[in-house]
């Protein structure tokens, strides 16, 4: 039972490392952006895991009900805004990749590096 309660953290660790692995070993820049998104989602999962309280409910007060237990609203606030910031920065990264493709004709980082070294 104690072990099952740690499952979320294991998934967090595995997802984080899947993202990091793809980030360092894939050459395609679009793939790297997707890997970054996986990495980011793993951190979101970690925060939301910490916010959960046993027997709790979503932190919205119901009128006329007393003694409710709520999950921690603070990590939820942080992650809610982080998701929207995340999509904006992903789009910025993707825009840079598109510009690189227009200049170099490729989105593989080793080919871009080789072209830079030649010139």
């Amino acid at each position: 039972m104690k072990l099952l309660g740690l499952f979320n953290y294991w998934v967090f660790a595995v997802l984080l490392m899947i993202g990091l692995y793809a980030l360092i070993s894939k050459q395609n820049l679009v793939k790297k952006i997707m890997a970054l998104a996986i990495f980011q989602s793993a951190v979101f999962l970690f925060f939301i895991t910490m916010s959960r309280v046993d027997g709790g409910t979503a932190p919205i007060i119901q009128a006329g009900v007393s003694g409710q237990i709520f999950s921690n609203p603070l990590p939820q606030v942080l992650i809610l805004t982080a998701i929207v910031v995340g999509i904006s920065t992903t789009a910025l990264g993707l825009a840079i990749v598109v510009r690189l493709y227009e200049e170099y004709g490729t989105v593989e980082d080793n080919e871009i590096l080789a072209m830079d070294r030649e010139s």
């Binding site: 939301i48 709790g56 932190p59 939820q76 992650i79 998701i83 995340g86």
Partner: peptide
């Protein structure tokens, strides 16, 4: 499932 209704809504719409 982790009681974060607001975050789930954001992730579904944005992600």
């Amino acid at each position: 499932l982790l009681d974060a209704a607001d975050v789930a809504l954001t992730e579904a719409a944005v992600g």
